[in-house]
């Protein structure tokens, strides 16, 4: 419980500061666009957090997001119907996770190394697949996909099918649904117990008869599949995606969200609620600096310092609660 107090406090402060920073900042349409970004980052945060809970790390998330976004566009360009392209892309993500997981469990390679290599490989794949892709260029080649793409965008992003106005935070809703699922498995089923046990002490889990390798692989598959889904969302939300920088360094945002949300990088700690809260921090902060009109040069400093102070405070609260326990 104390693990999420800090991030909860941070969010309260950020939202309060945001809403008081500008009369328009607290209006629903701004909060909806913030929520939408939170949803997108939240989905990769779920994956990263699960991997962290089982004591691993996935640095390939951002590259998989980018690669998936580009793949999604390329598939449609090649004449694959958008409704069919979505599952194909997610399957691609699952395959990536299977590869990562197998290398880590079978060959006993370090997760850091495997996924760092994955980061380069999948960024490269994205470049090989294509340069800059957007909905407009896909529709130009395949006018018949206009309606399906607009429908997907309406359902998954919450943008108006006619003029692209954001009307409801579909990505956030999607995040809540997925977080609910993750929470159910993590907190209510035997699998969740295995993940916590593996993350804290792989031997303890093994001696209890848990198939550690299989559980690890499953987690990497889930993580990469979520990253692929996020790639689809990015393609549907962004004007265009570029193979070079789509999803670039998002793995760090995801890991940041997970850690802010109470996951320990040592493994074995973390809650579904915490993951969602952790992922909500950065988008609010970004909206805040946009509304405050900070100069470009100070923005990275503001973001970095705020996160650092948040982390320090969080740690202080935790230490306090430990002493008083």
């Amino acid at each position: 419980m104390t693990r999420i107090l800090g991030v909860l406090g941070l969010l309260v402060v950020l939202y309060t500061t945001l809403i008081t920073s500008h009369p328009k900042a607290g209006e629903p349409d701004n909060l909806i666009s913030v929520a939408n970004l939170q949803g997108r980052f939240g989905i990769i945060t779920l994956g990263a957090a699960l991997v962290i809970i089982v004591g691993g790390i996935d640095l390939s998330i951002g590259a998989v997001v980018g690669c998936s976004a580009v793949l999604f566009g390329v598939l449609m360009n090649k004449g694959v119907h958008p409704f069919a392209a979505v599952p194909i892309v997610i399957l691609f993500g699952a395959t990536v996770g299977l590869t990562n997981g197998s290398l880590i469990t079978r060959l006993k390679l370090q997760p850091f190394l495997v996924t760092l290599c994955g980061m380069f490989v999948f960024r490269g794949f994205a470049r090989l697949l294509g340069g800059t892709l957007g909905q407009a260029s896909v529709i130009e080649g395949h006018p018949e996909y206009k309606d399906p793409i607009r429908t997907l965008r309406h359902l998954l992003i919450g943008k108006d099918p006619i003029d692209g106005e954001l009307i409801f935070p579909a990505q956030f809703i999607l995040l809540i649904v997925l977080a609910g699922l993750v929470g159910f498995f993590l907190h209510r089923t035997a699998y969740g117990r295995y993940w916590y046990a593996i993350g804290h002490s792989e031997l303890a889990a093994k001696y209890a008869g848990v198939n550690v390798s299989r559980q690890r692989v499953v987690i990497y598959v889930v993580c990469s599949a979520l990253a692929a889904l996020t790639g689809v969302l990015l393609f549907l939300d962004a004007p265009s995606v570029q193979s070079d920088n789509a999803g670039f360094s998002w793995e760090l945002y995801a890991i940041l969200g997970a850690v802010l949300g109470g996951c320990s990088l040592r493994g074995g700690e973390g809650t579904a609620v915490g993951m969602v809260l952790g992922a909500m921090v950065l988008p609010v902060l970004e909206s805040l600096v946009n509304f405050r009109g900070d100069a470009s040069d100070v923005i990275p400093v503001v973001i970095g310092l705020t996160l650092l102070i948040g982390a320090i405070v969080d740690e202080l609260i935790r230490q306090r609660s430990r002493i008083h326990r």
Partner: peptide, 26 residues
């Protein structure tokens, strides 16, 4: 659990944010 601590944390953060350069110009 520690209301006083949490309150001071929230206030402290708000102060830090407010005192950063380029404050919102009304």
């Amino acid at each position: 659990m520690f209301p006083a601590l949490r309150l001071s944390v929230v206030l402290g953060l708000a102060l830090v944010l407010a005192s950063l350069p380029a404050c919102s110009k009304k």
